[in-house]
Design a protein around this nucleic acid. Sequence first.
DNA 1: CTGAAAGCGCTTACAG
DNA 2: CTGAAAGCGCTTACAG
Lengths: 335, 335
Amino acid sequence: MPAKRLPTLEDVAARAGVSRATASRVVNADPRVGRLAREAVQEAIVELGYRPNRNARSLVRPEVDSIAVVVPEAEETVFSDPFFAALLAAITQSLADSPVQVLLAMGQPGDSQKIERYLRGGYTDGAIVVSHHKDDHIWQVLTATKLPAVYVGRPYAGDVGIPYVDVDNRAGGALAAQQLVSTGRRRIGTITGAMDMAASEDRLAGWREQLHSAGLDAGLVEHGDFSAASGAVAIRRLLKREPQLDGVFVASDLMAVAAVHELQAAGRKVPEEIAVVGFDNSQAAELTRPPLTTVVNPVTALAGTAVKLLLRLLEEQPVESRVILETKLVRRASA
Amino acid sequence: MPAKRLPTLEDVAARAGVSRATASRVVNADPRVGRLAREAVQEAIVELGYRPNRNARSLVRPEVDSIAVVVPEAEETVFSDPFFAALLAAITQSLADSPVQVLLAMGQPGDSQKIERYLRGGYTDGAIVVSHHKDDHIWQVLTATKLPAVYVGRPYAGDVGIPYVDVDNRAGGALAAQQLVSTGRRRIGTITGAMDMAASEDRLAGWREQLHSAGLDAGLVEHGDFSAASGAVAIRRLLKREPQLDGVFVASDLMAVAAVHELQAAGRKVPEEIAVVGFDNSQAAELTRPPLTTVVNPVTALAGTAVKLLLRLLEEQPVESRVILETKLVRRASA
DNA sequence: CTGAAAGCGCTTACAG
DNA sequence: CTGAAAGCGCTTACAG
């Protein structure tokens, strides 16, 4: 007799004096079980503290158990950037009423091996990949293993045969630039996100496009990496390069808030002397002083669409290969 | 032939011209497999895009697969209160090098049924329960199903036979009060957390104790629920009740930051006219103006201890029934 | 080094 | 309404 063994359905059946089949039917709320049998089984379940073995069930009833949200970023990043928090909350919420588990797989962006091993390992039935960098090999793994997957954010490599949802980042960057231009700013810079990500490229492209068509210099570009610290550093560099800087588009609110703090610390008035436009429309944008003018990142729609696509993929139904969501500018005090 | 079937080990074996046993050994990196066989199997795996079926493996090799972090709070709360974010990050990190999955189970605090069903459902091998309210029946479920579990934070019902880790909340409340008293404040209030949680009780008790022993009125108590909004409401009530209020201990930084904003909006200078002490030592405490004096909630140690205890429980080793972590005050500008 | 066979805990036609 | 039996995909003594 082993030291400790969890009670199985067999134990429950024995105790209730019925067959495993009947016990199983009770557990699964199958209506065609007699009252006496049902009650006996229910009692046995309580007495034994029976919990079904999920693995055994899944083996024989192949349903969707879990989907992984893959974020090739460090844990600190994931939990400190409100964009991820909001996206994760939204994904979790879209699946709240289904029995599908949401697993979170994170890992250093440089080293996606752990994630790749995870994806290959059969731990999950599908994946939503959220923050995708140029150098990771995630899509190759997804393709090789045929794991149903959806990207949030255009894959850097372009169309790789995996459907994706994205916000129109290019239009967003353009909106931001337009706001700065149309309010009379002339020395306009931008702080980009990590340049190994498609979103950063697109936002920059939109910004650049607008400056060009306004006949302004589109050279005042500094690269951040979406972290608060990088925003502070970048704005300092920008000021150094162009002391007359009077407007800046920062590719995320997290960086933008840091940049505003930095500007204020340097004695520059926002928005009087320099206007700042962020991206994301996160809570922080609203709470910081002055409140941030920013481009909306429709997190809930992004999450909902990704989940919907993945669920369809898992049911082997056809899905759009890409969905691009519109964005808009929210005008507040900073620009 | 079914429309679509994932390749199994059997398929791999057939393709490689070996037995399932050998194929299995290659997948599990068993050294005693000949080079030719190994290579043939590896090739087959790649060609077929084989992913092992985790359920089948777990069935036969009963290892710890996943642990659930149970937070009986709404998704929004979990993702907006930095305390949870920090705790989740820390728990995830402690398990980063192990193959153990971290599942996140959330749900409305009033309605813990969904969580209870989840816990009974056999979805996970163990649980860390993080934010526990008086009315939920989680511990009863854990006890009934013998699911290995650890609480972060003293269970409201007291010693229920489930080990827990907690910070010394009572001492923390006392430290906060002491700081206010010792800097000459005399009309000192407090904003509590949700009163159906042990942490709120303990922090309040510590605060009360100190005021009593300083011979001050300990009646200026307003109840919040740990949300930012509740902090704002509570400080207004406090001011209404006692316009001379010159010090307040707020039971979380999230509420404290909101209270400070509210005070500033009402034209009160912090700390000159009114001192504020928070709890948690979250990032926000550092970033808000003025920076918050606050009591440290040692999140990393809390998480690390909880994981350690749970892992031991899962290995059926004996564990302490409770671990209480010390706390300290971090002095900044707000008090 | 390799394979045939048993078995993990469950569900589900099938037969009654 | 109920049970005997097959089978899900894998691992692992056991025997060779």
